[in-house]
Design a binder for these strands. Structure first.
Lengths: 145, 145
DNA sequence: TATGAAAGGTACTGATT
DNA sequence: AATCAGTACCTTTCATA
């Protein structure tokens, strides 16, 4: 991975709809050279995809929370991610080192819905949960240097 | 916010480069009607922006961690987000209810860089830290139903 | 891996209902 | 809030270096 590709990635991370023409202007390459590089980055899955960033507050899901989970029965095989996959409120799922096994990031409309979601998570994966409610999102998914 | 707009948002969240023509086909609207709706969603900041999702493992930042922080001197005014804004490794910053004040999500190349980053976070915001290292990212920033 | 040209598709605007 | 038509721009491919 070299400098031109990194520059293209940084630009596309910030504006995923930027045109190849503009990317070319910004990198000093022709439109088709940039086109070729972006397609290659997509094929290699360095670019995993493109998405619109949506305001969940305006969409009626203002409540964000982190749910840390640990298995109730550690002797059982742990396939929590598969068991939880069907729960639509879960935005992200990481396994982690530390006291808990997984961290989930979830969005709900109300505290009542979060409560209901917690019950579904516990039941689906046979886990205990520890919930941390987000008060303010200062920034999210910023491009890392 | 009504059904057609929600459908457009769901489609754009999944594929931020989808053309207005295809959005029209998917919603049963004309190209210009979709165009009008998307522009309005952008103006109202329901759509906050568009971004390429990048594979940080392939980009040489394979280590992801959560850093929970709490102020060392609670009598001081807490402006941690501003103090931390310049640290490029911080991808997300939330204030939270619970034992800690903030949660940061960070990306680094190596454990040594994470250690260095932790020192910078502590010094910049005068906080103590608790770090949870991510082992596997099962999914991230999935579209929430 | 780069360029430039050509073809077809898309974005955006304005007129209209 | 929708459609249609028109123009300018963009994406994509191909021949070429």
């Amino acid at each position: 991975m070299e400098e031109t590709d990194r520059k293209i990635l940084a630009l596309l991370a910030q504006d995923g709809r930027m045109s190849f023409t503009d990317l070319g202007r910004a990198t000093g390459l022709s439109t088709s050279a940039v086109h070729q590089r972006v397609k290659r980055l997509e094929q290699r899955r360095v670019i995993k995809g493109y998405g619109a960033t949506v305001d969940y507050e305006q969409l009626g899901q203002p409540l964000t929370a982190f749910i840390s989970i640990r298995p109730i029965d550690p002797s059982q095989p742990d396939d929590s991610p598969e068991r939880l996959r069907g729960i639509g409120e879960i935005e992200s799922c990481w396994s982690v080192a530390g006291e808990e096994s997984y961290i989930l990031k979830v969005r709900t409309a109300t505290p009542a819905e979060l409560e209901n979601l917690l019950a579904r998570v516990r039941a689906a994966a046979n886990v205990s949960t520890r919930t941390t409610i987000v008060l303010t999102t200062f920034y999210e998914n910023r491009t890392v240097s």
